[in-house]
Design a binder for these strands. Structure first.
Length: 277
DNA sequence: CTTGTGTCCTGTAGGC
DNA sequence: TGCCTACAGGACACAA
């Protein structure tokens, strides 16, 4: 569930807690969480003794830049959670723990074991991380223009929603923010991407930018399942501002029509049948 | 290349 | 009460 705004919120919360600290030891409770190197021993050896310089983010990937040209990369997938531990507490579903200088630890909990952590040389993309190398521009960056999006859509017959979820097109966008951006742009998710008019593509590019920036502003979306919370346990505050996601059967805030839900590409999709054409 | 489907993984919600 | 199934969703493997 963590998408770009949630990962960015986590990055901002963790940066001051982690920057400057040294990794003292690594404890792996579930080896399948380690995506690279293949062995737990190799993973630990690549990290121990290294200092965390700063935190970055690429799409939904959180990157801890270490000294010696190494990166520690996290992907939280659906239910991953990062937390700084100062006492003896051990979070439920803790899969990997990084003990740090300053009597604290970074705990990576992931109930569903779909999330991954990778220790790589800076800029290296091992098997399983190839998608990171092909990632498109951030929708919140100036490189993400109407022309770029139009070029991505040209000739494509897939539903526009499916292309918004393609990280090569809209990196960092997931199920929540794709539905919200399409609502703001007034476009039905089922529309085939290649048939959108230039003005619609322009509205969509602007909507992606605004909805992701709003998500960051409100520290992400915490749904009732509580899968995403900030590292300190606090909830995000964007959920009460959602226009369509998770609102099936409720009234559209703009026109009072009943919000509908359908499936596109095996993904739950929400839209207003009146506001979105 | 493009598109759609299945798989991974586990906890939870809902049906009977 | 308790079992069973469906579902959630990001990314990738794979088939058509």
């Amino acid at each position: 569930m963590p998408e770009l705004p949630e990962v960015e919120t986590i990055r901002r919360a963790l940066e001051p807690e982690l920057a400057g600290r040294t990794i003292r030891s690594v404890t792996v409770a579930r080896p399948d969480i380690v995506g690279y190197p293949a062995s737990v021993g190799g993973f630990s050896r690549a990290l121990i003794g290294r200092r965390i310089e700063r935190l970055g983010r690429t799409g939904k990937y959180l990157v801890l830049h270490l000294d010696g040209e190494r990166d520690l990369i996290f992907h939280l997938r659906l239910s991953g959670h990062l937390e700084v531990i100062t006492g003896t507490r051990k979070p439920d579903y803790e899969r990997v723990r990084f003990s740090l200088s300053g009597a604290r630890a970074l705990s990576f909990a992931e109930p569903r074991v779909l999330g991954r952590v990778y220790a790589v040389r800076s800029g290296q993309y091992p098997p399983g991380l190839t998608g990171m190398a092909r990632m498109g521009p951030e929708p919140i960056s100036t490189a993400f223009t109407c022309d770029f999006l139009a070029a991505q859509f040209r000739g494509r017959t897939a539903p526009v929603k499916s292309l918004l979820l393609d990280q090569r097109v809209c990196c960092g966008v997931g199920n929540i923010y794709s539905d919200e951006a399409l609502f703001r742009a007034g476009i039905r998710p089922q529309r085939r991407a290649g048939v959108l008019r230039k003005a619609e593509v322009g509205r969509l590019a602007a909507s992606l930018r605004s909805v992701l920036n709003d998500g960051i502003k409100w520290c992400g979306t915490t749904m009732d399942d509580g899968r995403y919370v900030m590292p300190d346990g606090a909830s995000g505050r964007f959920q009460s501002r959602l226009a369509v996601f998770g609102r099936e059967g409720e009234r559209c805030r703009k026109c009072s029509s009943i919000i509908r839900r359908s499936r596109i590409g095996n993904r739950s999709t929400h839209y207003c049948p009146n506001c979105q054409k």
